[in-house]
Design a protein around this nucleic acid. Sequence first.
DNA 1: AATGGGACCTGCGCGC
DNA 2: TGCGCGCAGGTCCCAT
Length: 266
Amino acid sequence: MPELPEVETIKRELEKAVLGKKIVDVIVNNSKVIREPKREDFVKRLKNTVIKNILRKGKLLIFELSSRKSLTIHLKMTGQLIYPGDGTTSRVSFKLSDGKLLDFNDNRLFGELRLIDNWQNLKFIKELGPEPFGLTGEKFKQMLANKKTKIKPLLMNQTFMSGVGNLYAAEALFRAKIHPERPALSLTEKEKEKLFQEIKSVLLEAIKYKGSSVDQYVQLSGKSGDYVKCHRVYGREGKPCFGCKGKVKRISLGGRGTYFCPICQK
DNA sequence: AATGGGACCTGCGCGC
DNA sequence: TGCGCGCAGGTCCCAT
């Protein structure tokens, strides 16, 4: 599941691989992933535009184009961007001026491609909370004040803070030794500070390892990311905790699988 | 206001 | 061996 580190990894690789290139053709194999405009307009308006700038906002990728429109790409659960691609499994392929393909793959068709005038006007963008790296500890503490909601679903709420999903929320909470079901306002000042630092450090570490290849995520080249080997709780149900002699437990929280150590995390 | 559930989807792993 | 089922989770949407 692509979260901030995975999307950031792809963004950095895209800058090296496709920035400044022209989209000469668009091959649509499944139009379900094209959310707007209609397929024909999507293709027509993308043709012969140059990729001028590549941005990431939370988990959303944005290509700013020479036409002044923007192509936004949300990978959701199983989306992949592959370059150079071969077009064999893609939902949509972008043929570039270098003759190579940029493939958008997505098994489950949750992903979203949009060609829009102003990405700033997207509802998702307007409601997006700040990124952890754009915050100070003080600001983060203020944001938690008065929040009765459980800390883990809150961290995953993109309107609260952007970029953290199920995997990194679990990992950050383990490192901060905080139980995922604690009401946010029950955290001590010290715990809030610790959690804020751990969120940033786990995301930076994951970027260094080029993301976590669980499920479908791969880098732009198609290679896996290496961060799974650093996971301390995610996907480790029943396995020994790295911090004590207990076992990692899995519960459902907000409809999401939640891994934690009931002994280390209070 | 906060929370829970369903919808969107497909592939995989499990139990029988 | 094969089939049906539950599950995976990012985001939106609706109900309570």
